[in-house]
C-alpha cells in the first residue's frame, strides 16, 4: 500500500504535495484555536473535506483509477463552503442575499454540468471533467473576494491587514482562482482518459497555486490568537 503511494508521489510530486500540505492549516487551526472564530470554523470544515476528497483521489490515482468523478463532486462542495465564509464576512445585507442566492443556483448548475458532460454516470472509467463549472466557480469567487476587499477598504475597520487572518485567506483564494480561471476550461480536454490534450507544464499550474494558497492560509491562521477588531 505504502509503496504504491510512494511511487505515485515520486511520479507526480506536484499533484501530491498539496494533498498533504492541507494538513498544515488544519493542524494550525486546531493548535491556535482558530476554530473559535466562526469563519475559520468553516475554513476548517472546508479543509477537512478537501483533505478527505484529495486523499481519496490520491489513493485512486495511485491505483491508476480515474479520479475525475471526485473532482467533479468537489466543485460544488468547495463553492458552498468557501462562499459560506464570505457570507459570514460580508456585512451588507444585499450582498449577502446575492451570495445566498448564488449557492443553490451554482450547485444545480454544476450538477447539470456533470450530467451533461457525462451522459452515462456509471461509466467511471471514462468520466470526464466538468466543462463550465470550474470557470463559473472561479468567476463567482473572484467576484466575492473583490467585493469583500472593496468593503474592507470602504469601512476601514481593520488597522493592520497583515495581522488580519482572513485577509491572508482571501489573498490565497484570489491567487488560486486567478490562476485557475483560464486553465480550468482546458483541463476538461486535458484530463480525458483517452485522446487527451497535452498541456505540459500548464496543467501543473493549479497545483502550484493550490500550494501557494495553502501556505497563505497557514500564514493567516498563524496570526491567531489575534485581537478582535470589533469596533
Amino acid at each position: 500500500m505504502l509503496e504504491i503511494y510512494i511511487s505515485y508521489f515520486a511520479r507526480q510530486p506536484l499533484a501530491s504535495i498539496p494533498v498533504f500540505l492541507t494538513l498544515i492549516p488544519i493542524v494550525l487551526i486546531w493548535k491556535r484555536k482558530a476554530y473559535l472564530d466562526r469563519t475559520f470554523q468553516i475554513l476548517a470544515i472546508y479543509l477537512v473535506a478537501k483533505f478527505a476528497i484529495d486523499f481519496i483521489m490520491f489513493d485512486w490515482a495511485s491505483q491508476k483509477k480515474n479520479t475525475v468523478v471526485f473532482y467533479n463532486l468537489s466543485v460544488p462542495v468547495r463553492y458552498i463552503l468557501t462562499s459560506w465564509m464570505f457570507y459570514n464576512k460580508l456585512e451588507i445585507k444585499r450582498y449577502k442575499n446575492w451570495l445566498l442566492l448564488s449557492v443553490p443556483v451554482f450547485t444545480s448548475f454544476s450538477i447539470w454540468d456533470i450530467l451533461n458532460t457525462n451522459p452515462s454516470l456509471s461509466d467511471l472509467h471514462n468520466h470526464k471533467m466538468v466543462l463550465y463549472s470550474t470557470t463559473v466557480e472561479s468567476l463567482l469567487m473572484l467576484f466575492w473576494i473583490l467585493l469583500y476587499f472593496y468593503n474592507t477598504i470602504r469601512t476601514l475597520k481593520i488597522p493592520n491587514l497583515l495581522t488580519y487572518p482572513f485577509f491572508w485567506v482571501c489573498s490565497g483564494l484570489l491567487l488560486y482562482y486567478s490562476s485557475f480561471l483560464f486553465i480550468a476550461p482546458v483541463l476538461h480536454y486535458d484530463s480525458k482518459w483517452e485522446q487527451w490534450l497535452d498541456m505540459g507544464f500548464l496543467s501543473y499550474v493549479p497545483y502550484i497555486f493550490e500550494c501557494v494558497s495553502i501556505v497563505l492560509f497557514s500564514i493567516g491562521i498563524s496570526q491567531f490568537p489575534s485581537p478582535r477588531y470589533a469596533k
Binding site: F149, L156, I158, L161, F167, S179, L181, F182, M199
Partner: peptide, 29 residues
Amino acid sequence: KLALLIASIAMLMMAFFVISFVMYYQKKR
C-alpha cells in the same frame, strides 16, 4: 498553450496588483 500561459500570468499579475493595492490603500487611509 502560449495564449493560456499569457492569460494566466496576466490574471495572476492582476491578483497581485489587487492585493497590494488593498494593502497600500488601507494603510494610507
